[in-house]
Amino acid sequence: MTLCINGADYPMPNDPRTTLLDHMREKLNLTGTKKGCDHGQCGACTVLVDGKRVLSCLQLAQTVRGDVTTIEGLSKNDTLHPMQAAFLEHDAYQCGFCTPGQIMSAVACVSEGHAGSDAEIADWMSGNLCRCAAYPQIRAAIASVAQAEAEG
């Protein structure tokens, strides 16, 4: 059994207790995904599985069914993903610790069609805490990406 992360195959952990988050951070050196609480209460560990946003701290690695995308897999070579570029442009981060989770969640928020208005973005991004409270800038970044996508 293997785990597909960012297009590459990795071995499954032997220990069934290993979460996807711990496996990536401790064994695969994929430390971009952060551990903010380890109990599904902050969103810092958000990754995509088959395009859906999930919390890697509550996902046992051996039960993952689908392809995982993390912050490290978002940009292609040196080109930032539009959401990463928008976060940079809108200063949508401060300490940066929640940022990988925010960006992964934001990518899903747009693809789900939940970025239609400021209020809708606020609602559908409420699973990602940001204690620096860069919230308005995060909303602006997501709105800009959603708008650019809408304009094709």
């Binding site: 912050i71 490290e72 978002l74 930032l80 990463q84 940079l88 981060y93």
Partner: peptide, 9 residues
């Protein structure tokens, strides 16, 4: 340090 932060680096 922004580019590193948005890339997870």
């Amino acid at each position: 340090e922004g580019a590193d932060k948005v890339r997870g680096l």
